[in-house]
């Protein structure tokens, strides 16, 4: 059975990465709600220690999945993935320490602008280029993140 023409146009118009990104927004949005519930009941350090317990079932599911074996340079890819976790975790530690020394209303909007660093680093290291419409979107996203973080 072939897809309706409208569906084909829609899937071309919005590629898989876009839908996966929207799914990430929903999951992390729900995580943000959970953070609101947990923040007064546990220290950020203990939260960070317990956090990986939630990763465990997903890690196990990925470990036994067919896709786990995929890839052409497992050593390099695994190193980059591990580094992603280290940078993310250390970023969290620096963030919590900053919160101890200043106000949430200052630290959160400031650190929320990290995608601007990603764009600069991606241009430098990955030679990525984005078009003018996306640059406009990026700037508006930075404003949105700032406003939503206050």
């Amino acid at each position: 059975m072939s897809a309706a023409p409208g569906t084909q146009v829609a899937s071309r118009r919005f590629p898989a990465w876009f839908w996966l990104s929207l799914l990430t927004i929903v999951l992390w949005g729900a995580w943000g709600l959970q953070s609101k519930l947990v923040v007064d009941r546990i220290s950020p350090w203990m939260n960070q220690v317990l956090f990986p317990l939630g990763l465990l079932p997903v890690m196990l599911a990925m470990f036994v999945s067919k896709g786990f074996a995929g890839g052409h340079n497992k050593r390099a890819g695994s190193r980059w993935a591990f580094l992603t976790g280290v940078l993310g975790g250390l970023g969290n530690v620096a963030f919590y320490l900053a919160l101890l020394k200043s106000q949430v209303s200052i630290v959160v909007p400031l650190t929320g602008l990290f995608p601007l660093v990603t764009v600069a680093a991606a241009r430098l290291f990955l030679k990525e280029r984005i078009n003018r419409v996306q640059i406009t979107g990026l700037l508006i996203a930075a404003v949105a993140i700032y406003l939503l973080s206050l």
């Binding site: 956090f51 890690m59 975790g89 530690v93």
Partner: peptide
């Protein structure tokens, strides 16, 4: 850089390992 070299499944597992280490 990770997903340029390996699958997202393997990437996630190594990402999780780093969080456990921290």
């Amino acid at each position: 850089l990770s997903t340029n070299n390996i699958s997202f499944q393997r990437s996630f597992v190594w990402f999780g390992v780093a969080f456990f280490a921290i």
